[in-house]
Design a binder for these strands. Structure first.
Lengths: 237, 237
DNA sequence: CAGTGGTCTAGACCACGAA
DNA sequence: TCGTGGTCTAGACCACTGG
């Protein structure tokens, strides 16, 4: 055990129960006076811990009602994790998804990244095209770790975009984006209904919950007419 | 005056002095006991306000020494504001800049965005190429508001990358990125020493300090061999 | 060593809003 | 209504570190 303060201990224990799934979104966490009794400390100490969890977005508090585990990412207008389904709907276009391929498989032997993502379990591999008003908007190739998200095996991704479903069901703690520009090859051009050689954005994103790798997705957008927008402030706590 | 709590008032007043430049980076802000006397409140209230400013990254605190205005963005390893000069140096390459054009001018009459950026003053327009080991790495086209950053008029940007200089001298509170993929036209291809039609990333960034628009920059990177990387956590305080 | 910030206590009053 | 969280007080002890 490392040296840590009491309110950090309280934060850590609650955080652990939330991230482990023991306390799912919507779960009411103990009242301040209950935590006071449990840790044998003053109310301000508990309050400081819970205030920190609010700033971290892990819980929401309502007077007279109590404190509750926050629902993950209700709507992320900023960069964070772009939700293509919400984005298309937000532009007033009819959203649809065309699921091209779906298979459950083991990680490929040579690929260290896939093995790490799988975490000892299987992977769910998805390929789909996002459509806005019937026209191709983006191609998505995604791997989901079934060890981290076993529920994904039983979701019908012909109805719901995988990213949209994950955002609503799986809290994440860390993500990494890589963005590159590529020229569309024949397959990509065909799927997106653009000319071969058109400049496209390739957005690769890996997402973690604690140390568990959740998913790795690569999304391809036609360069013309699509911008990724990120608006943010320094430090980011 | 709107309804706000005492510690929010304290945060707001200190924040205002920092963002206005009245208290520059490194300035020692009053001790807790001085703020207690000034606001006539308990020490915990002052402490809560200062703790919030620490989380926001505006101040740093050292025991026995006091609290000081933080120096803006010592090193931003994450996306935030990429510093091309630091990035190239971090890859072990020799950094150099080639300043192609520098002019002080008024905002163009038709362009609302330039007028807003200028804020009643002039603009400094820069065009430069960033070089790593002598090879073109990125093309940068930048506008700086001299109303917001008058010191920029006297900086020699043939020595220091504009973004690098701004990061070290101007604290910012908000930024917006737009990322698109484009095909290199002849001019861009020539400046970056790539084939015309190569897919490139176009990263457009606008930065504010409070309500003052500081700068607008567009950077073009060859798509092959360059990725923008962003690593982050939810909420972001 | 002395003064700073870091942390914590054991109370208090108030506003809000679910019951 | 009345229990909850939101805020604040007036102390306290401690660890750290600059002088």
């Amino acid at each position: 055990m490392k040296r840590q303060t009491l309110h950090q201990t309280i934060v850590g224990e609650i955080e652990g129960r939330i991230l482990s799934g023991e306390w799912p979104p919507g779960h009411r966490i103990p009242f301040e006076h209950e935590l006071m009794a449990h840790y044998g400390c003053a109310r301000m100490t508990v309050n400081k811990a819970l205030a920190g969890l609010v700033k971290a977005g892990l819980i929401v508090r309502r007077q007279r009602a109590g404190s509750f585990v926050a629902h993950p990412r209700p709507a992320s207008a900023i960069l964070d994790i772009p939700d293509i389904q919400a984005d298309i709907a937000g532009r007033g276009m009819a959203y649809a998804i065309r699921l091209l391929d779906r298979r459950r498989r083991k990680p490929e032997a040579g690929k260290a990244e896939e093995i790490q993502l799988a975490g000892g379990g299987d992977l769910l591999a998805l390929t789909c095209v996002h459509l806005g008003d019937g026209r191709p908007f983006a191609l998505e190739e995604r791997l989901i770790s079934l060890a981290s998200v076993p529920e994904a095996a039983s979701v019908d991704f012909a109805e719901t975009a995988p990213g949209h479903w994950l955002l609503g069901h799986v809290p994440w703690t860390e993500a990494e984006h890589r963005i590159a520009a590529i020229s569309a090859d024949r397959r990509l051009a065909g799927l997106l209904d653009i000319a071969a050689g058109t400049a496209c954005l390739a957005l690769s994103r890996r997402t973690w919950r604690g140390t568990d790798h959740i998913t790795h997705v690569v999304q391809y957008f036609p360069g013309n007419g699509f911008d990724l927008v990120a608006r943010f402030t320094p430090q980011g706590g």
